[in-house]
Simulated scan of single mutants.
Amino acid sequence: MELPNLKEGEVVLDKTQFLDGRIGEKVELETNIGKRNFIVRDLYQEESPFETMKVGDRVIISDETFERVFGRKHYNTLVVSFPQDEDGVEYIPVILRELNRSRFGYDQVRVLETPDIYRKVERIRGFVSKSLFILSFISLTVGGIGVLNLIASSVRERGSYIGILRTMGMNKKNLREIFLIEAAIVVMIGGVVGVVFGILSSYLAGSILKIPPYFNVFKMIGSLILTMGVGLLFGIYPAKKAGDLEIVEALKI
Protein backbone atom coordinates (compact mmCIF):
# COMPACT_ATOMS: atom_id res chain seq x y z
CA MET A 1 0.00 0.00 0.00
CA GLU A 2 3.10 2.22 -0.07
CA LEU A 3 2.57 3.36 3.52
CA PRO A 4 5.39 4.95 5.56
CA ASN A 5 7.32 3.18 8.31
CA LEU A 6 5.65 4.12 11.58
CA LYS A 7 7.37 5.27 14.75
CA GLU A 8 6.20 4.91 18.33
CA GLY A 9 2.83 6.64 18.82
CA GLU A 10 2.10 7.10 15.10
CA VAL A 11 -0.94 5.66 13.31
CA VAL A 12 -2.36 5.33 9.82
CA LEU A 13 -6.14 5.71 9.63
CA ASP A 14 -8.70 4.50 7.12
CA LYS A 15 -10.01 7.74 5.63
CA THR A 16 -13.39 6.18 4.90
CA GLN A 17 -13.93 5.72 8.64
CA PHE A 18 -12.10 8.79 9.96
CA LEU A 19 -13.53 11.51 7.72
CA ASP A 20 -12.07 14.27 9.93
CA GLY A 21 -8.60 12.71 10.09
CA ARG A 22 -5.77 15.01 9.03
CA ILE A 23 -2.11 14.10 8.56
CA GLY A 24 0.02 15.51 11.37
CA GLU A 25 -2.86 16.04 13.79
CA LYS A 26 -3.45 14.25 17.08
CA VAL A 27 -6.23 11.71 17.37
CA GLU A 28 -7.65 10.10 20.52
CA LEU A 29 -8.37 6.37 20.22
CA GLU A 30 -9.86 3.89 22.66
CA THR A 31 -7.53 0.99 23.58
CA ASN A 32 -7.49 -1.86 26.07
CA ILE A 33 -5.80 0.41 28.61
CA GLY A 34 -8.03 3.44 28.06
CA LYS A 35 -7.94 6.40 25.71
CA ARG A 36 -4.59 7.23 24.17
CA ASN A 37 -3.37 10.04 21.92
CA PHE A 38 -1.63 9.27 18.63
CA ILE A 39 -0.20 11.26 15.74
CA VAL A 40 -1.78 10.67 12.31
CA ARG A 41 1.14 9.84 10.03
CA ASP A 42 -0.87 8.98 6.94
CA LEU A 43 -4.31 8.01 5.59
CA TYR A 44 -5.30 5.09 3.38
CA GLN A 45 -8.46 3.52 1.99
CA GLU A 46 -9.09 -0.13 2.78
CA GLU A 47 -10.06 -2.14 -0.29
CA SER A 48 -9.86 -5.71 1.00
CA PRO A 49 -13.41 -7.10 1.33
CA PHE A 50 -12.25 -9.27 4.23
CA GLU A 51 -11.36 -6.16 6.20
CA THR A 52 -14.29 -3.93 5.20
CA MET A 53 -16.76 -6.58 6.40
CA LYS A 54 -15.36 -6.47 9.95
CA VAL A 55 -16.88 -4.41 12.73
CA GLY A 56 -14.62 -1.76 14.25
CA ASP A 57 -12.22 0.98 13.23
CA ARG A 58 -9.26 0.20 10.98
CA VAL A 59 -6.06 1.62 12.49
CA ILE A 60 -2.49 0.71 11.47
CA ILE A 61 0.22 1.04 14.14
CA SER A 62 3.86 0.03 14.50
CA ASP A 63 5.07 -3.16 16.19
CA GLU A 64 6.47 -1.08 19.07
CA THR A 65 3.14 0.65 19.68
CA PHE A 66 1.26 -2.63 19.41
CA GLU A 67 3.53 -4.30 21.97
CA ARG A 68 3.22 -1.38 24.39
CA VAL A 69 -0.56 -1.07 24.11
CA PHE A 70 -1.73 -4.66 23.67
CA GLY A 71 1.19 -6.93 24.53
CA ARG A 72 3.41 -8.86 22.18
CA LYS A 73 1.39 -12.07 21.98
CA HIS A 74 -2.15 -10.72 21.85
CA TYR A 75 -2.80 -11.25 18.14
CA ASN A 76 -3.92 -14.41 16.41
CA THR A 77 -4.61 -13.17 12.88
CA LEU A 78 -2.22 -11.53 10.48
CA VAL A 79 -2.49 -10.04 6.98
CA VAL A 80 0.67 -10.18 4.88
CA SER A 81 0.70 -8.31 1.57
CA PHE A 82 2.84 -9.16 -1.45
CA PRO A 83 3.65 -7.23 -4.63
CA GLN A 84 1.06 -7.75 -7.36
CA ASP A 85 3.53 -9.63 -9.58
CA GLU A 86 4.62 -11.98 -6.79
CA ASP A 87 2.88 -15.24 -5.88
CA GLY A 88 2.90 -15.39 -2.09
CA VAL A 89 1.44 -18.89 -1.71
CA GLU A 90 4.85 -20.57 -1.31
CA TYR A 91 5.89 -18.08 1.37
CA ILE A 92 2.83 -18.49 3.59
CA PRO A 93 3.96 -21.75 5.34
CA VAL A 94 7.40 -20.24 6.00
CA ILE A 95 5.91 -17.06 7.47
CA LEU A 96 3.51 -19.02 9.69
CA ARG A 97 6.29 -21.30 10.95
CA GLU A 98 8.52 -18.36 11.86
CA LEU A 99 5.71 -16.45 13.59
CA ASN A 100 4.49 -19.44 15.59
CA ARG A 101 7.97 -20.56 16.67
CA SER A 102 8.13 -18.04 19.54
CA ARG A 103 4.49 -18.07 20.64
CA PHE A 104 4.77 -21.13 22.94
CA GLY A 105 1.45 -21.52 24.77
CA TYR A 106 -0.37 -18.71 22.96
CA ASP A 107 -2.86 -19.33 20.17
CA GLN A 108 -1.21 -20.12 16.88
CA VAL A 109 -1.31 -17.55 14.08
CA ARG A 110 -3.77 -18.69 11.44
CA VAL A 111 -4.27 -17.88 7.78
CA LEU A 112 -6.99 -15.29 7.33
CA GLU A 113 -6.96 -15.32 3.54
CA THR A 114 -4.84 -16.57 0.68
CA PRO A 115 -4.10 -14.85 -2.64
CA ASP A 116 -6.38 -17.30 -4.47
CA ILE A 117 -9.31 -16.60 -2.16
CA TYR A 118 -8.66 -12.87 -2.35
CA ARG A 119 -8.62 -12.92 -6.15
CA LYS A 120 -11.90 -14.84 -6.23
CA VAL A 121 -13.52 -12.35 -3.87
CA GLU A 122 -12.17 -9.47 -5.99
CA ARG A 123 -13.70 -11.01 -9.11
CA ILE A 124 -17.04 -11.37 -7.35
CA ARG A 125 -16.86 -7.79 -6.12
CA GLY A 126 -16.00 -6.58 -9.64
CA PHE A 127 -19.00 -8.47 -11.06
CA VAL A 128 -21.30 -7.01 -8.40
CA SER A 129 -19.97 -3.49 -9.05
CA LYS A 130 -20.56 -3.80 -12.80
CA SER A 131 -24.05 -5.21 -12.20
CA LEU A 132 -24.91 -2.34 -9.87
CA PHE A 133 -23.59 0.16 -12.42
CA ILE A 134 -25.82 -1.32 -15.13
CA LEU A 135 -28.82 -1.31 -12.76
CA SER A 136 -28.09 2.31 -11.85
CA PHE A 137 -27.95 3.28 -15.52
CA ILE A 138 -31.25 1.51 -16.18
CA SER A 139 -32.82 3.16 -13.12
CA LEU A 140 -31.67 6.62 -14.27
CA THR A 141 -33.08 6.01 -17.74
CA VAL A 142 -36.41 4.73 -16.43
CA GLY A 143 -36.58 7.62 -13.95
CA GLY A 144 -35.82 10.14 -16.71
CA ILE A 145 -38.54 8.70 -18.92
CA GLY A 146 -40.91 8.89 -15.94
CA VAL A 147 -40.10 12.58 -15.48
CA LEU A 148 -40.63 13.18 -19.21
CA ASN A 149 -44.05 11.50 -19.12
CA LEU A 150 -45.01 13.32 -15.92
CA ILE A 151 -44.18 16.78 -17.28
CA ALA A 152 -45.73 15.98 -20.67
CA SER A 153 -48.92 14.88 -18.90
CA SER A 154 -48.84 18.06 -16.84
CA VAL A 155 -48.58 20.14 -20.02
CA ARG A 156 -51.59 18.37 -21.52
CA GLU A 157 -53.68 18.78 -18.37
CA ARG A 158 -52.84 22.48 -18.05
CA GLY A 159 -53.30 23.45 -21.68
CA SER A 160 -56.08 25.92 -20.90
CA TYR A 161 -54.00 27.52 -18.12
CA ILE A 162 -51.08 27.86 -20.52
CA GLY A 163 -53.35 29.57 -23.03
CA ILE A 164 -54.66 31.97 -20.38
CA LEU A 165 -51.13 32.81 -19.20
CA ARG A 166 -50.04 33.46 -22.78
CA THR A 167 -53.11 35.67 -23.30
CA MET A 168 -52.14 37.66 -20.20
CA GLY A 169 -48.71 38.35 -21.67
CA MET A 170 -46.44 35.58 -20.34
CA ASN A 171 -43.73 34.80 -22.86
CA LYS A 172 -42.53 31.36 -23.99
CA LYS A 173 -39.30 31.51 -21.97
CA ASN A 174 -41.13 31.95 -18.67
CA LEU A 175 -43.44 29.05 -19.46
CA ARG A 176 -40.47 26.79 -20.17
CA GLU A 177 -38.88 27.82 -16.89
CA ILE A 178 -42.07 26.99 -14.95
CA PHE A 179 -42.14 23.39 -16.20
CA LEU A 180 -38.37 22.99 -15.82
CA ILE A 181 -38.66 24.09 -12.19
CA GLU A 182 -41.47 21.60 -11.70
CA ALA A 183 -39.27 18.85 -13.16
CA ALA A 184 -36.39 19.90 -10.87
CA ILE A 185 -38.64 19.77 -7.78
CA VAL A 186 -39.95 16.31 -8.71
CA VAL A 187 -36.44 14.98 -9.31
CA MET A 188 -35.08 16.55 -6.09
CA ILE A 189 -37.85 15.07 -3.94
CA GLY A 190 -37.44 11.68 -5.62
CA GLY A 191 -33.66 11.77 -5.20
CA VAL A 192 -33.79 12.70 -1.51
CA VAL A 193 -36.42 10.05 -0.80
CA GLY A 194 -34.30 7.49 -2.66
CA VAL A 195 -31.16 8.37 -0.67
CA VAL A 196 -33.02 8.19 2.67
CA PHE A 197 -34.59 4.86 1.70
CA GLY A 198 -31.18 3.55 0.59
CA ILE A 199 -29.54 4.55 3.89
CA LEU A 200 -32.29 2.95 5.97
CA SER A 201 -32.18 -0.21 3.84
CA SER A 202 -28.38 -0.38 4.21
CA TYR A 203 -28.60 -0.15 8.00
CA LEU A 204 -31.32 -2.81 8.03
CA ALA A 205 -29.34 -5.15 5.79
CA GLY A 206 -26.16 -4.43 7.80
CA SER A 207 -27.86 -5.37 11.06
CA ILE A 208 -29.09 -8.63 9.55
CA LEU A 209 -25.79 -9.58 7.85
CA LYS A 210 -23.64 -8.17 10.70
CA ILE A 211 -21.75 -5.99 8.19
CA PRO A 212 -21.57 -2.28 9.02
CA PRO A 213 -22.68 -0.07 6.10
CA TYR A 214 -20.30 2.47 4.60
CA PHE A 215 -21.46 5.74 3.04
CA ASN A 216 -19.43 8.16 0.96
CA VAL A 217 -20.98 11.61 1.37
CA PHE A 218 -19.31 12.99 -1.77
CA LYS A 219 -20.57 10.10 -3.90
CA MET A 220 -24.08 10.54 -2.49
CA ILE A 221 -24.04 14.24 -3.35
CA GLY A 222 -22.63 13.44 -6.79
CA SER A 223 -25.42 10.90 -7.35
CA LEU A 224 -28.05 13.49 -6.41
CA ILE A 225 -26.53 16.02 -8.81
CA LEU A 226 -26.38 13.41 -11.59
CA THR A 227 -29.99 12.41 -10.93
CA MET A 228 -31.15 16.01 -11.09
CA GLY A 229 -29.19 16.54 -14.30
CA VAL A 230 -30.77 13.51 -15.97
CA GLY A 231 -34.24 14.54 -14.76
CA LEU A 232 -33.82 18.07 -16.10
CA LEU A 233 -32.46 16.71 -19.38
CA PHE A 234 -35.58 14.60 -19.86
CA GLY A 235 -37.78 17.50 -18.73
CA ILE A 236 -36.46 19.89 -21.39
CA TYR A 237 -38.56 18.44 -24.23
CA PRO A 238 -42.01 18.73 -22.59
CA ALA A 239 -41.08 22.13 -21.15
CA LYS A 240 -40.05 23.35 -24.60
CA LYS A 241 -43.24 21.93 -26.06
CA ALA A 242 -45.27 23.82 -23.47
CA GLY A 243 -43.50 27.08 -24.32
CA ASP A 244 -43.99 26.61 -28.05
CA LEU A 245 -47.75 26.15 -27.79
CA GLU A 246 -49.69 28.85 -29.54
CA ILE A 247 -52.49 30.55 -27.61
CA VAL A 248 -55.32 29.12 -29.70
CA GLU A 249 -53.81 25.64 -29.70
CA ALA A 250 -53.29 25.71 -25.93
CA LEU A 251 -56.89 26.79 -25.26
CA LYS A 252 -58.15 23.84 -27.33
CA ILE A 253 -56.34 21.26 -25.16
Rank of each mutant, 00 (worst) to 15 (best):
K172Q: 14
R158C: 11
V142K: 05
T65G: 03
D42G: 05
T16S: 08
D20M: 09
T227E: 00
I124V: 14
V147F: 02
S48F: 05
Y214R: 13
A183R: 06
L6P: 02
I23C: 04
T31R: 05
S207M: 12
G144T: 11
L78T: 06
E98K: 11
I23D: 05
V186N: 06
G231S: 08
R176M: 15
F133N: 13
V79R: 14
G24T: 03
E2N: 11
L232G: 01
L226V: 14
I221A: 12
T77Q: 13
F70W: 14
R72P: 00
I164E: 07
L3F: 09
S160V: 12
L148H: 01
M170F: 05
V12N: 07
F18G: 01
G222T: 10
R123F: 12
L135R: 07
G229K: 01
F133W: 10
I247G: 09
V128I: 15
E8N: 12
N32I: 15
G126K: 15
I211C: 10
N5L: 07
S201V: 12
R158E: 15
Q108M: 10
V27Q: 01
R125V: 13
L175P: 01
A184Q: 04
P83Y: 03
L132H: 02
N37P: 01
E51P: 00
V111R: 02
F234E: 03
G71T: 07
I134E: 04
I185A: 14
F38W: 06
V111H: 05
F38T: 02
G146R: 02
